[in-house]
């Protein structure tokens, strides 16, 4: 594989910054039932799938996670850890598929986001905050995962069609862009 990645680095950074700003400004007042998708995870995995998950995606995930942590102002490092972990797990999982499609991306994002939300809930609970019954926590995690999966599917289509400057790498093809 040669040439620039389908999604240029500066485009990736702009998309992540926009996702982060949406996440901490408009989104909290707009989402149905008060459950929010994880836009950072959706954008990050779309970039990873189109460009090929590698060190660059991992660094982007870590940086975006830290930015979110500092804006949240509590449990600093949690979002960075979860985004980096999600990228690494996605890399391992996607390597078992030879081709990509939006259904696989949706499944991976939903699963990763569901477990990320559960880990966040446990971390917040351990920090001393009351969260309420377990079934509510599970329901919120599942709803958030569904929203994030749908957001990722839409972003994947949009980014592949309008922002990609060449054919996608299909990131989980072994050895691509490493």
């Amino acid at each position: 594989m040669s040439g620039p990645p389908p999604i240029a680095l500066w485009v990736s950074v702009v998309l992540l910054v926009m996702a982060l700003l949406l996440q901490v400004t408009l989104l909290p007042g707009m989402t149905p039932a008060g459950v929010r998708p994880d836009l950072l995870l959706a954008v990050l995995l779309c970039i990873g799938v189109l460009n090929g998950i590698g060190v660059e995606t991992a660094i982007l995930g870590l940086s975006a996670g830290f930015a979110a942590d500092f804006l949240a102002g509590y449990l600093i490092g949690l979002n960075a850890f979860l985004l980096l972990g999600s990228v690494l797990v996605a890399d391992r999982v996607l390597q078992s598929f030879t081709r990509s499609n939006v259904v696989i991306l949706f499944g991976v994002v939903v699963t990763l986001n569901f477990f990320s939300e559960l880990i966040r809930a446990v971390a917040v609970r351990l920090s001393g905050m009351e969260l309420g019954p377990v079934h509510v926590v599970a329901l919120i995690s599942a709803t958030s995962a569904l929203y994030t999966g749908l957001a990722a599917a839409l972003l994947y289509y949009f980014m592949g069609k309008y922002l990609s400057i060449q054919e996608p790498v299909w990131g989980w093809e072994r050895g691509a862009r490493r």
């Binding site: 982060l20 929010r36 949240a72 102002g73 509590y74 905050m129």
Partner: peptide, 13 residues
């Protein structure tokens, strides 16, 4: 200037 980005806390900065 910011709201908590996650689902588990309702906080603002």
């Amino acid at each position: 200037y910011s709201r908590s980005p996650g689902n588990w806390t309702r906080e603002v900065m």
